[in-house]
Amino acid sequence: MLTLNETDRLLEELRESIATLTPSVCYSCARCSSGCVMVEAGCIPHSIIQLFRLGLLKETEKGLWPCCQCLKCDARCPQDARPAMLILALRNLLVARGHAPPKGYIVMLENIVRHATIQPPQEVMNKDFDFVSRATLGLPELGKPTNMDAFRRNLRKIASNLLEAEEK
């Protein structure tokens, strides 16, 4: 459990990269949670805000990852408490402190380092059951960043906690 000062300090730290964090204005009307499409998976935005305010950081974890970041809660909050931004910030914080995020995020990040996009261009099946590619569809090659080495170096530097130092 965090003390009030510690929660405030944590908020300041999180605001370094996510400016719109204002959980203290929440008056628990639950308008956020009443419209949340991920509530079935345990994402209850007003409860995440309340747990955070109580300094119960660990208890917020369960509901964090199912959020689909549709931002409906942020848009509808009458107080502008920004639950979705708090969820985003807490996810970033957990990962920065060494928690493993859901695997899909790592796969996407590794693919970005390798291909510059979350996956290389795929072959897809058309209605005639033929597999088609960008080339067979007549779509141009889009190319990769001009300096892929610098691109990879930069990403490895920023996301050193999630990526191997060098590609194996």
Binding site: L109, I112, A116, I118, G143, T146, A159
Partner: peptide, 12 residues
């Protein structure tokens, strides 16, 4: 050229 806009990994 084409490269990810970053949105998918913003969460982590």
């Amino acid at each position: 050229w084409n490269a990810c806009c970053g949105y998918p990994i913003m969460q982590v």
